[in-house]
Nucleic acid binder design. Structure first.
Length: 573
RNA sequence: GCGCCUGUAGCUCAGUCGGAUAGAGCAACUGCCUUCUAAGCAGUGGGCCGGGGGUUCGAAUCCCUCCAGGCGCGCCA
């Protein structure tokens, strides 16, 4: 819609320059905005102010010239200048009816665009360790990542959703030990054996109740195969547990597989589906991609030896505070080494844009990955990191205690089950992701006007209900009937529907899904008053038909928007 | 100490590629269900946009500085 207006301005300026009325032939990047007040027309542009320094004339003088030209356009009712040099454009109703027609014609396609130009995007999100259930923070990341995938897709990108699984390293050992400890308990092992093992853990084990469930399943599985728990495991040192002992390896494999399945189940129920799960272990076997990556970094001179360790030149590459270690003095690779290799692999797979959705506490890590991209000869701006701030869970305004240490953190599952996936996702998408989010469980559940989820969904259900009530009156209407929509509220509603395209485009370009949430809340805030003021189904068949079309377009836009958020658009509530 | 994020109405937050008189929801108060869904609507009050300086026709928005809060600065993952 705005491109049409912009083109109109461009033509006017071009014509003026041909006539010699102004000097500038090609426009700077002008802004077209929807006017905030009726007296400022439908759209306003700052073009005259931007031309002022080039033309060396007062903005109002230039504005007057342009306004005069624009006023002659076919779809323009009136065009004048105001304030410091704004040009206010008043469009004829026909313009808005043509937009309405377009929305009805495009249906589910309305809102899609091609700013992405088919670029291949790898969107990595959630990437939780397979050592426990997803908590509420992961939920926010999941909601944001998934909505972003949908939005980028709608804006013409080719999106791949990936979950990076940290299935090797210290924390899966901790997982194994934790499960083993619960196994000993369940077997009612001698007190001194349990205490001895617990002593060795030095409080470094997962304490959540789910560990016990996994332990129970594991024992049952062993029993089913006629095997018993390997008692020797309790004597082994912590670090090399699974490397030197096949029983330990089996236990860890079982536990992390079990927990990853649980994570997948949570995500599926949350409406999030990944295109792929990328295993960190797969970077080491069957091919050792990490070693290959490190070798290439050495070759290119971006990695160097010092103090017995191997370092990546992150200071030189990305202005990091210090260089970072890839291989420790003891020969072990760091987590960063894996991650650098992983990102090289992403690039090798031919993606144009890499988007990572990370917890905000990882922001110090950004420079390191950016450095890696640069070391591989890629533009570091290919990488875009979306940081997710904390979620503060409240109940009736009172904070819900969250202490991961004691294993009593709130899981996504609990919240999802309590408030429903629609409300849960919508709430996660209400704020921009780098702002802390207050999530009130009672508010999310409440079926009251203060709950924005239902406010939007209700508008959709209402329209569907009206259409059901209208029955055949809604059918078989030709486009000309639309000009029966004479009410200011109706034109205003169409105007807002038209803005959906821009909301989606902006959400995609800025990678800010919350813009869609806001847009929908505003749209519902325009529809509900319209519904209350004007009756759709009346004795006048023509007007009824026209209004049904308007409502239908509104329902379409709401449904399209909610779909982008991964929230349902119910026909009945 | 250095880096990143945040500071806008009583509360939670939009608006931040510079634009006209700074917006919404909640909370508070007053009304509206015999009529297409009251999970709704109409109305009222509410602001040194953290402070100060600068840039210019114009600053919540850009620059500098200070203040307050959060996070990060491991040969952890």
């Amino acid at each position: 819609m705005k491109p049409r207006i912009k083109e109109m301005i461009r033509e006017a300026v071009h014509a003026l320059s041909q006539e010699g009325a102004i000097k500038t032939a090609n426009l700077p990047e002008i802004i077209i905005e929807k006017s905030r007040k009726d007296e400022f027309g439908d759209f306003a542009t700052n073009v005259a102010m931007l031309l002022t320094p080039l033309e060396k004339r007062p903005p109002r003088e230039i504005a007057a010239l342009i306004a005069h030209k624009v006023a002659a356009s076919a779809l323009v009712k009136k065009c004048d200048c105001a304030g410091p040099g704004f040009i206010n454009i008043f469009l004829k109703e026909e313009f808005w009816f043509s937009i309405l027609k377009e929305i009805l014609d495009r249906g589910a396609e309305f809102g899609r665009c091609d700013v992405g130009k088919g670029k291949k995007v790898l969107l990595e999100f959630v990437s939780a360790n397979p050592t426990g259930p997803l908590h509420i923070g992961h939920g926010r990341g999941a909601a944001v990542g998934d909505a972003l995938a949908r939005i980028l897709g709608a804006a013409g990108h080719e999106v791949t959703k990936e979950f990076y699984v940290n299935d090797i390293g210290k924390q899966v050992f901790t997982l194994g030990r934790s499960v083993y400890y619960r196994c000993l308990e369940l077997q009612k092992e001698k007190k001194e054996v349990i205490d001895g093992f617990l002593q060795r853990l030095q409080d470094d084990y997962y304490k959540g109740a789910y560990i016990r469930d996994v332990a129970e399943e594991y024992l049952a599985r062993l029993g089913g195969k006629g095997e018993t728990l390997d008692a020797n495991l309790s004597n082994l040192p912590q670090e090399n547990w699974f490397v030197i002992n096949s029983a330990g390896y089996a236990l860890i494999s079982f536990a992390k597989g079990r927990l990853l399945d649980a994570i997948k189940k949570d995500l599926a129920d949350f409406g999030v589906e990944f295109d792929g799960y990328f295993s960190e272990a797969s970077l080491y076997k069957p091919r050792n991609i990490v070693d290959e990556t490190i070798a290439s970094l050495k070759d290119s001179g971006f990695a160097f030896d010092d103090d017995g360790a191997l370092w990546l030149k992150t200071m030189e590459l990305a202005n990091d505070d210090k260089d970072r270690v890839l291989i420790k003095a003891d020969g072990a690779k760091t987590y960063l080494a894996s991650d650098v290799a992983y990102h090289r692999d992403k690039l090798d797979r031919g993606f144009d844009i890499l988007v990572n959705v990370w917890g905000a506490d990882h922001h110090g890590y950004e420079a390191r990955i950016r450095a890696a991209l640069k070391a591989f000869g890629h533009d570091p701006d290919k990488l875009r990191i979306i940081f997710i701030q904390l979620v503060a869970l409240l109940r009736n305004g009172v904070p819900v205690p969250m202490g991961k240490r004691e294993g009593e953190f709130v899981t996504l599952r609990q919240v999802m089950d309590e408030v429903g996936t629609d409300a849960c996702r919508f709430f996660f998408l209400m704020r921009k992701s780098d702002a802390q989010l207050d999530f009130d469980l009672e508010l999310a559940k409440s079926q009251a006007p203060e709950n924005p989820v239902y406010y939007v969904q209700y508008a959709h259900a209402r329209i569907k209900s009206i259409m059901a009530h209208a029955g055949d009156a809604a059918l078989g209407i030709d486009a000309d009937a639309l000009n029966l929509l004479k009410e200011k509220d109706e034109i205003n509603l169409i105007k807002h529907l038209a803005l959906f395209e821009e909301a989606v485009e902006r959400a995609a370009v800025e990678m800010e899904p919350h813009r869609v949430t806001y847009y929908l809340t505003e749209l519902a805030g325009i529809f509900h008053p319209y519904y209350n003021k004007h009756r759709v189904v009346t004795g006048d068949p023509g007007l009824t038909a026209a209004r049904i079309q308007l409502c239908k377009a509104a329902a379409t836009v709401i449904a399209n928007g909610l779909t982008l958020l991964g929230v349902s658009a119910p026909d009945k509530m």
